[in-house]
Simulated scan of single mutants.
Amino acid sequence: MFRHSIRILLVGLCTLTAASQAATAAALAVPAEPHTAAPADQALRQQTLSDLATTMKGEAFAYASYSLFGAQADREAHPAVGKLFRATAKTELNEHLKQAATLVGVVGTNAANLRQSINGETYEHQVMYRRFADQARKDGDLEAANLFTEIAADEGRHRDAYRTALTVVTTGRGTVPAPPKADTVAVPAGLPKVKAALTKANLDTAMHGEALAHAKYMLFAARARQTGNPTLARLFEGTAGVELHEHFASEAVLAGLVRTTKDNLRKAITGERNEANNLYPGFAKRATAVGDTAAARYFRDTAADEAKHAAAFQQSLNQLH
């Protein structure tokens, strides 16, 4: 969710209880002012913003995936690996994504956050998921087509709830809707349940978007609580739970995202090494070249963290052999 809202921004992550969602929101709290970590007299260049947007999508996806990998490790009686996956997931969300969001200035006023959310939900409801469903149906992936259609309807309801909340926030009249409740989906290890290459690609796009939506809504929830609006915070948190524990999880089942713990560790090692050795150093080099020094430092520091994650995952994999 929200690949489209990233473009708007450039141009204009087991079930959580209510208490744990609030705690995550507090951990994710970021300043509302745009570009707070950039030099006061210089906004971030567009390429740097684009690289930070890519970073946020990747870190949100890592959080969501590692959370599922941790659950699979527990099922296979590898509690230490499960703990490692969950701890790494928290770092990706509460540190890496949060810091990138601060640099970009993702979080604004409650009204601005609602408008951004409405735009994203509208696109998914009216365009993205309907197109994905049509393509999956055309290719014979009927289970995926049905899921995409169902999620499109959910996103329409999310949009409507956010519209109502925006009216309350801007006029002071009315009531913020009650938060939706996620129909939590278990994600066991398994192979993909779709056959067409386009459906697989669309599932990947959708999972990255749902993971990012979860992360952003938790940021927005933290802002709502900071500004004395716990009812709005609960709406954001509840919707975030649907995006992660229902939408992302259902898509992960069809995509075959979770495999054996050994396979999950190998996948994580490959991803972390790529970020440490290629992706983030490249982003840092570009940011340095245009004078975005704070962003360049962030990319370098994050690359170093990812190298440590890769080493920890590799050590765990070695111990399982």
Rank of each mutant, 00 (worst) to 15 (best):
S67E: 05
A268G: 06
P281M: 04
A153D: 10
A37W: 05
E124I: 09
Q126P: 01
Q99H: 12
L320N: 14
A77K: 12
R234E: 15
S117Y: 11
A240W: 09
G282Q: 03
V127H: 10
G12R: 13
R223H: 06
G172I: 11
Y123C: 03
Q72G: 04
R163A: 11
D134C: 02
T164V: 12
L219G: 06
E275R: 04
G58A: 04
D204E: 12
R130Q: 15
G209F: 04
A136F: 10
A312W: 09
A289M: 11
A233S: 10
A64N: 10
L9G: 14
F220T: 09
P179E: 03
D204W: 10
H96F: 00
L142G: 06
L203V: 12
V30P: 02
H214S: 14
T260N: 02
P177L: 02
A18W: 08
T48D: 01
L257H: 00
S20A: 13
G241Q: 13
K262A: 08
N264M: 03
I269Y: 05
I8L: 12
M1G: 14
A144R: 01
A201Y: 09
I151E: 04
R273P: 02
S316T: 07
A25M: 11
L265Y: 00
L44Q: 10
E251D: 05
H35D: 14
E251N: 06
F283C: 02
A60H: 00
G120I: 13
G238N: 04
F2W: 13
N229V: 12
G174F: 02
K193Q: 15
H35Y: 15
A186C: 03
T227Q: 08
T122M: 10
K285D: 12
Q135N: 14
V176Q: 06
A303I: 06
L244G: 05
A133Y: 00
E124P: 02
V30D: 03
L279R: 09
H208T: 06
N229M: 14
A303L: 06
T288K: 07
D141V: 06
P39A: 07
V107Y: 01
R131H: 15
V194T: 15
H208R: 12
L235K: 10
T24P: 09
T270D: 13
K195C: 08
